[in-house]
Structure formats: C-alpha cells, structure tokens
Design a protein around this nucleic acid. Structure first.
Lengths: 250, 250
DNA sequence: CGAAGAGTTGAAATCGCTCAACGGTCGTGG
DNA sequence: CCACGACCGTTGAGCGATTTCAACTCTTCG
C-alpha cells in the first residue's frame, strides 16, 4: 500500500470532475463560484504516516480530503494520545479564522488534499454564502459524530468499541461502493492497531486481543492482517451496544 | 436552590438589554435584525431536573440558554448514560434543519431559554448572514470543546477527570465574574455527583471518592456538598494532566 | 415520622493496562 | 544471499484502577 504513489496527474484541476464535488465544502457552489475556488486551490499529497501539521504549528490553509484518510489527534504532556477525528474523502480540515492547528493532522493512508490558502478562503466565505452554509452543515455533522464518539469513549467496553469501529468503517466503505449494509461485507482496514487504539481510547494490546476474540467467535474473519470480512453485519452490530437503528457517521 | 422560581418577568422582551446579547447566536445582529428576532422569540423556563426534550422527540424550536445550565446526554439501550454537552448561558441548543432532538436535553439548574420556532429561524438564517456566521463560529467552538472532552474521556485518569471538570467550571465562573484565575477561587458546583459522573464517564462512587481524595490532600475545600473552594488554582491545574497553558472552553 | 434524594465509604470483583516475549514481513546492506 | 533491524501484530501473566454491590449518614419534604 505504501508503495502506491498518489496519482496527482489523474486529479485534474477541473472541479466539475472532482470525486468529492458533491459532498465537500464546495458542494453547493454554482459554476461561477466554483470557478473562483478553482483559481485559489492547489493539491498536496502525503504518504501514509506523514504528518500534515503538528498541533500548535502554523496552518495557513484549509483543505478538503480528496482521497485517502487523515487523522486528527491530541497528545498529552506525558505522551498519551487520543485521536479526535478521522477525515475521510470530502471531509474538511482546518478552521477559518484560526492560524494554527489545534491538532496533529496525520496521513493514515496515502492522502491527497485540495487546499485553499486561508485568507482568500475566508474572504470567499463572506461573499459566497453557499460555502459558509455547507461548512456549517458539515461542522454540525462532525459535532454529532464527535458526540457519538464521546459515548463510545466514556461508556462502551473494549469489545463494543472495536465492534463499533468496524461497523462504522464497514458502513462508510459500503456507502462508497453503493452496496447494502447487510449480510457479508469486506473491506481493508485503513488503520494500524495502534491507530485503532488511539481512536478507541484503548491500548494496542487490548485492540489486538479483542480482534482475536471477535475472530475466534466468528463475528469477523481476516485475510492477512488488514482485510476484514464481516460474515453477518447485523450480528456484529449487536455487539456495538447501540440500539439497532443507530445510524451515525452515515 | 430548587426553590428559587425563575424570574421571567425580570427578563424583558427587549433584546438590547439581554444578558447574553453579546455572546449568543444573535451576537452579531444589527438593530433591525434583532427586531426580527424579537418578533419570533419566546421564553421558556424549566426547573432543575426537568427534561426539556427527550432524544428522538420532536423539537420544533431552537434556543439559546439565557440563565442556568442545561445538559445534553445520550442513553444506551441498557441504561448507560454519557453526557455529551454542557450548555451554559449563551450556548445554543437544537439544530437548524433537523426536526428531532438527537439528545436528551435536561435542566441541570433552573433554566431560562430564549426559543425560536425552527421554521422561521431557518428562513431567517438564509436572509441574515450574521446569524449563520455566528452559529458557525459557535459550532466550531463546540466541536473543539467536544474534542477536548474526547481526550479526557479516552485518556485521563479519574483523578485527572475530576480536576479537569473543576478547573473548567471554576474558569467559566471566574470569567463570568471577571475575576482572575489564580490563587483562591470559590464557586457553586451546578452538578450533582451523578451528573458529574455522567459527564466524566465514571461511576458516581468514583466521583465521590476522588472528590474526597482531593479534599483530603488540600487541593480543594468544601462548604456543604456543593460549594467548592480552590485554594490554589494552579496547583489544581497540575492535576488535570494538561499542559500548563491549555485554555479550552474559555 | 417515614420515605426519597444526595452523598460517602468499604470490600470484593473485574476489565483493561503494563510489561514481556515472540512471530512474521519487508527492506537494507555486508 | 542471508543476516539484521524495524515495524506490525499476537499472546501471556500479573497488577491495579475503577466498577459493582452494599451499608450507612444527612437533609428535605409531605
């Protein structure tokens, strides 16, 4: 996976052909608004494991994830780390009106971001309500996701945490591929055991043990370390502790 | 405290005299915009312990907290509860574009809210960018606060959690009273031990024990169950695990 | 007075953490 | 070509922080 070079050339500068066109912060823009964005945007790519910005460092751009996955995390003085956000394609990074990053932003996989310098973007927000509207909507969604995650961190058992994470990633993956979230699902885990543990507020050993436990009980199967097969999605869902419908991070 | 009746009559319908005028969602509104808001707003008050809305229930208004404290919480099927937000005066409840509440909203103390019916408010948001702008700013702040809380829930010890909560409330209180956050601070805890435990992802017994432990070590003193005295704020701050500056929820 | 609510404290159980050893894969350099 | 280290992941044993269950105090309220 790490050997695949991001194919920048395949992502043209033509916003209308952009894979995240209809979900990103620019989703509601009209043709003319898009044109303005197109003039100030630029792409940056990162290899898996690379740091995009460190918490506290200057961040003079905001950006949309085009392909790949980025993580937001916080570190305590003594090194304890907690992931506080997972940025998937179309998600937004950075905060208009703030010049430094509040979190470490890291490429979990190879990553391509569509960046806008902060100042022009902020000015654009004032003149283009469609951008601000979409950003508000996305921020409210992220707040809901963060609150869902607070429930997981504060109240779920290790087993429930793992099951929840697998279900969320499986769902996201299924929705990208337009497949149903029932019966058998397969996907590649984009996170290392360590990244999972940072997200779930566990140690990596506990993550490993719970993964083994779910595997031994037939709730999941694995091919290699990273490819996951969920034979029965609804059965795994019952291990999350959520009420059956709970459709978060959809 | 529960016997004090909210003095609705003392809160006039005049927005310009509103105590949260400069911090709430209406903060950036001009006089004419305020006039429109004034026409669609209405006050509601709740007694400590009362539920404002249940998760999943219809919520046909959005609102600002005027006085008192409200909590947002989620409940799992088996009854485990996690608080996911603490709404202080000027904070905003409800989500434009959504008709049901995602969380249980409860009055932690006596509470007065300034409500707007959802439909008119949504229309107003489209025509009044000042409202949408302020709401975006507030939502981004809440997202930061939620992420700070994720670090607490995922990585802090019980002792650090308690110290963090006390510091946050003390800070908020000091900022309301325009006093310094150094040396001795005094304030009333607006939360029961149970509410604290729901916020911190602990059991109420653990909260009680850790409070006793901090008291025995002289980091805090108490008058009655709810009045807290922090003899040396910086000393308590060291127990939170945060790096010395960390100014969250400011 | 009795009951209900809030809070404290103790003893035992348990879940997840810490420390440690080990296996597999991959890339590098002698 | 193989040895080596780096990285990722698994598993075991023991420990400890927090939970669970339970008893008890104090205050308030009808």
């Amino acid at each position: 996976m790490t050997r695949v070079k991001p194919k920048l050339q395949t992502i043209g500068h033509d916003c209308t052909a952009c894979p995240i066109r209809h979900r990103a912060v620019c989703a509601r823009c009209e043709a003319d608004e898009l044109q303005v964005l197109e003039n100030i945007k630029y792409y940056r790519s990162f290899e898996a494991g690379q740091t995009v910005v460190w918490a506290g460092d200057n961040m003079d751009f905001v950006a949309s994830v085009v392909t790949g996955i980025a993580t937001l995390s916080q570190t305590m003085e003594d090194g304890r780390r907690q992931m506080v956000g997972l940025l998937l394609p179309s998600d937004f990074a950075g905060r208009p009106g703030r010049s430094t990053s509040a979190y470490d932003v890291t490429a979990a996989t190879n990553l391509v971001m569509c960046c806008f310098r902060r100042k022009p973007f902020e000015e654009l927000m004032l003149s283009t309500p469609h951008i601000a509207q979409r950003l508000l909507e996305m921020t409210l969604d992220e707040l809901d996701a963060a609150r869902e995650w607070m429930l997981l961190l504060g109240r779920k058992t290790a087993r429930e945490k793992i099951a929840s994470l697998l279900c969320i990633i499986a769902r996201r993956d299924a929705s990208l591929q337009l497949s149903q979230t029932h019966g058998e699902l397969r996907f590649d885990l984009p996170l290392t055991r360590e990244a999972m543990s940072e997200y779930l507020g566990l140690t990596l050993e506990t993550v490993s043990r719970q993964m083994s436990s779910l595997r031994k009980q037939g709730l999941i199967m694995t091919e290699g370390k990273r490819h996951i097969i969920i034979p029965d999605f609804d059965q795994l869902l019952e291990e999350t502790g959520d009420d059956s419908d709970g459709g978060f991070l959809v």
